[in-house]
Write a protein that binds this DNA or RNA. Structure first.
Lengths: 216, 216
DNA sequence: AAAAGTAAGTAAAAACATTCACAAATCCAA
DNA sequence: TTGGATTTGTGAATGTTTTTACTTACTTTT
């Protein structure tokens, strides 16, 4: 495992799951061939960027023809480890947490919430979207083989729970709380701050009047 | 209005709401002075980046001292138009939409969901988090003064509803569906793709083993 | 089989963003 | 009041990402 290349730019890496999903859709639709231009229109990513991104993995297409959907899809499946599943723990079964449980990833997706926790005893024992809710006190015993957590707890609990997650061996956290949590160097945190996103959109609308630009 | 500077880098603009929120917290806590180093530790943004970001707005601090929290906060309040409220429409009162309605922004926040829509008649008429749910058919009549929409509908409806939103005068969309929607040039779309975020985190964990890096 | 068209791949340029490193200004302790 | 400590603001260096522009190779049509 551990594919050699650490050379793929982060910006590219962030787009890979998007590429994968679109290729999968095309494949399901029975399309066997696609060009960077078509992909560009569908995904709103510049076609040169797409070609450059793909090129980090080698020459995957054919000049004058484009890309073979099935081949490309297979390639990305391996690259993105779509074979192996990534089990995920959800911490905090509030409104947002419940949304995640019902959302049920794994349509074209190798990530799946396997276990959920909440501090509210009325929620413990319930099954939401097929997933059992455990009490947060039982966190430590129920994270076997799980290294990724989605954090949807109240902001006041965020750091405290994070510390426990880290101690329990979690090494990646998708943090939906507004808290900028502190973790050891070997733990990766991605923040998604919904209030910031909304304000940021409003700011861009007011101060960056577009009449031409591409995207986000 | 329309503050002169179109010169602020986008990367900086995206951090402004974060800065604002932290300054507000500091102010509430009664702190009157703060350095870029302290801010850096709290927000996990490099201190030089913070100083550089602030500097786009002029010299806001004092050498040897740091920044006056109240002054800086006041400055950002004006810059971010925290005075004027930005009313928002929520389209799609499913799990995620409900989470937003209950989440209720506007703690330190000038964005507020004012109206919600759904296609399910059983939801219409309900009040969730103080917000009335209207039928999606009544979209066009109920978007007076609203220019921002949060899109949390099923992916199959995304483009169709987007077209209606645009026709009804919406010029900014926070899109939580996996669809990469098509809009006219003058409409700004920010995508938040939860499945992609999760997969992307998993990819980074596997291929970018950190033992040192900063953040996202 | 030739000509016209298409589209990948990429080198180089441009644009964008972060970080270093330090002078200048101010603070603060004794 | 002096002198060391602090901390900003920023030029320059570095790093990253996007975009341009073009060659090459293949496809398709005639």
């Amino acid at each position: 495992m551990m594919i050699n290349q650490n050379k793929i730019p982060q910006a590219t890496a962030k787009r890979l799951p998007l590429y994968y999903r679109f290729l999968n859709n095309l494949h399901i639709q029975g399309k066997s061939r696609v060009s960077s231009k078509e992909l560009s229109e569908a995904m709103k990513v510049d076609s040169a960027t797409i070609r450059r991104d793909f090129s980090y993995f080698g020459a995957l297409g054919k000049k004058g023809y484009g890309y073979n959907v099935e081949y490309l899809l297979g390639f990305f499946r391996k690259t993105l480890d779509q074979d192996e599943n990534t089990p995920v723990a959800l911490i905090g079964v509030g409104n947002l947490g419940t949304a995640f449980l019902n959302y049920n990833f794994t349509k074209n997706n190798n990530t799946k919430i396997e276990v959920a926790f909440d501090a509210d005893k009325r929620k413990v024992g319930k099954t939401i979207g097929d997933i059992q809710v455990h009490h947060i006190d039982d966190l430590e015993g129920n994270l076997e083989n799980i290294s990724v957590a989605i954090l949807t707890v109240p902001v006041s609990e965020a750091q405290n729970i994070t510390d426990r997650l880290v101690k329990a061996g979690i090494s990646g956290i998708l943090n939906f709380t507004p808290a900028r949590i502190t973790v050891p160097e070997n733990v990766r945190v991605h923040h998604i701050d919904l209030a910031v996103e909304l304000q940021s959109l409003a700011y861009f609308m007011k101060h960056y009047p577009l009449e031409n630009e591409g995207e986000e």
